[in-house]
Design a protein around this nucleic acid. Structure first.
Lengths: 151, 151
DNA sequence: TCCAAAATGAGAATAGTTATCGTTGGCTTG
DNA sequence: CAAGCCAACGATAACTATTCTCATTTTGGA
């Protein structure tokens, strides 16, 4: 559970809007939210926070390492709390759900490729797009209209 | 060298704007161009093509499999001619240059991960962001202001 | 050559995001 | 505990990338 101490540690004042946004990110059922999603969640819980502030704070959180920004297909950025352990993503193009995975072999090969080419890797992103058919059978994929949810 | 035959094979009329755009994509020094880049290149070579047409045609080319669209960090889409052989990308955050690579082991592991999780993979994208220090020594990295070129 | 259908170009419209600026609030000092 | 400074906020304007609209022009076949 993050609180004002985490904000101060990140060099940010512990203001009300920042704490509220942090709370939303922690309590959300979907770990990956767009700025708009966070804004709507705030409104739904009766909080008065401007959209501009949401964008501003999310960017500050990203800079501070508290959240990670993703640019999935579609041009809309999504954010997730940085839980410390790196992982990659599989995005279902049918239902828009995002699944996380970690593969040591892939990580190792990426470092190898960068090194071999004299490239100093700062970060990397790997997204697998497809349909969660197998998962769908178990009720996970709710089959919304394609690309309506995927951002 | 692509020509009107390739367009017809893709189910597209061989119109002048389409041929011009194809020519630009083939002749460009940078294989990865944004719609704006293509538009400017057309103007520079004295061609009269509207920006809307560039966007429209690039999307049609993508659908037809002639080009591949990438969403690098920064929210701007870039396009490259589809040369048939799949590859991933390393993007230099200093000079904006894009390097391509192909690693069979990574490809195999990705398929494995998708399969293991009951996920039917349609496509995937792997981007490594960093600095081409080693390459820079050999004069490849021109060290422009950071992120001005990277899109 | 003629025509219908498809494509184009100019500009309006949209979506997502960032910048501006007067007001508010957190926090330190007295 | 009050005062004040500066960072942060909220509303909204501005911006960037992209798509849509629609009147005009091309393309490719009859």
């Amino acid at each position: 559970m993050r609180d004002s101490a985490d904000l101060k540690k990140a060099g940010l004042k512990a203001t009300l809007p920042r704490l509220k946004i942090l709370t939303i990110l922690e309590g959300a059922k979907e770990r990956h939210m767009s700025a708009e999603d966070v804004y709507k969640a705030l409104l739904d819980s009766g909080e008065e926070v401007g959209l501009a502030t949401v964008y501003r704070v999310l960017t500050q959180f990203e800079t501070a390492g508290l959240v990670i920004r993703h640019n999935f297909e579609g041009g809309r950025a999504v954010f997730e709390l940085n839980q410390g352990h790196h992982h990659d993503h599989m995005v279902c193009v049918e239902c828009g759900k995002v699944f996380e995975f970690y593969d040591p072999a892939i990580e190792a090969r990426q470092r190898k490729v960068a090194e071999t080419n004299g490239f100093v890797m700062e970060e990397h992103s790997l997204y697998i797009y497809g349909t969660c058919d197998g998962l769908k059978k178990s009720g996970v994929c709710s089959k919304k209209t394609r690309s309506s949810t995927l951002v």
